[in-house]
Design a protein around this nucleic acid. Sequence first.
RNA 1: GCGCCCUUCGUCUAUCGGUUAGGACGACAGCCUUUCACGUUGUAAAGACGGGUUCGAUUCCCGUAGGGCGCGCCA
Length: 431
Amino acid sequence: MARPCCSPRGYAIRPRRQSRGKLAVMSSPVVTRFAPSPTGYLHIGGGRTALFNWAFAKRHGGRMLLRIEDTDRERSTAAAIDAILDGLTWLGLDWAGEPVSQYGRAERHREVAEQLLAQGRAYRCYCTPAELEAMRAKAESEKRPIRYNGAWRGRDPSEAPAGVKPAIRFKSPQEGETVIDDQVQGTVVIPNKDLDDLIILRSDGNPTYNLSVVVDDHDMGVSHIIRGVDHLTNAARQTQIYKAMGWRMPVMAHIPLIHGPDGAKLSKRHGALGVDAYRAMGYLPEAMRNYLARLGWSHGDDEIFPTAQFVEWFGLENTGKSPARFDFAKLENLNGHYMRHTADASLLQSLVAFLPHWEEGKPMLKALEDEATRTRLLRAMPGLKERAKTLIELAKSAGFLFAARPFPSTPPPPKFWPMAERSCFLASCKF
RNA sequence: GCGCCCUUCGUCUAUCGGUUAGGACGACAGCCUUUCACGUUGUAAAGACGGGUUCGAUUCCCGUAGGGCGCGCCA
């Protein structure tokens, strides 16, 4: 049963009131989290990870938390945080409570690091970054695995060189293996000899990722961790930390990555697009959600379904392990479908919401402030939306409505207009 | 180099040992339409390779090849 859990940093996790219904048979509330690092925009893979976390939480009557992993002070920016929140909001994904700043919890992380140190599960390491770098280079040139050699693992602290601030390393088991029981990947076994003693607290006293994640997920009561497979090795390291702390493991689910059309990793490091770019290309959030849902997850032959249906169907057991390539053609087709099936008035709203994000959208946005113009566009909508695959296409094909400023009061339209526009024009003039 | 993971039409995927290997996007060819679009009908298109296990493998096991991810005082 869920118990309130309070972190020393002061935020209390209230147990969620158990909702009735057949899905509420879980003994503890489902808490997922989306934990992006604010070093850039929200890329598409992150968007899907958020979608899965969101859907999973909703599906089980739980909630999704948002944690900003901003412990890297050098690279974290406020602009990136805004971009991420903006991207999630546009995608229609909401989260419970305020976003948690991981950096804001550094004190608590240090505390755990100290505890590990006191328990003999961690030790001070006086190697300098330069020494480490040399060690790595040597290992690489000798074609040996690149790992920390544990130089300070058994060394007496009295041998510590003067003037060197130590980092704290986790004393990772050297024999045996670490097993990850993953809902998507299955049972993954990693030999402990391949996992070196990772730094959990930097020499400047700041915690590192793997420690922070474990402490935060634990303190925040996260029950299910759904993230990209690129974190699989981290999962092993984190498992060791959970064990050392005697904490209960959350359920893990590592989903496959989304690759670019060329098969290479699609991430912000490789110039992939942020979700804001998809908005600017005129895609509808609901189409985006539907498209993303079908990347790595499936429900039989079902292709097009509303988000509510996706939430009802979503489960980790239907999530595949192989990576998918991003296919614009399919996205575009799906988007066209959604445009055609969206009510005129609501599509007009989507268009108005989109216009500010389109570089050519200003004039039309201005023109649409006029009630009569909006009405005219609304009338033309049935014909317009039929042949537009994106909001950009919709806006462009609607352009004729705004072109001639003193709008001709009487048809017929000029003969050189394409038939589609002529008929739409006629429709817009219909009384 | 070491570890982990992946491999069904071009792409996303279904298949939970026995199917004419299904669907969707895309492609191609018709139909519909005074254009386009929509819609619609049809066609081409896949189990990486080699071994096992089994009466029977796309499905289970091993190997090979190819691909991906990870190996930071980044997250």
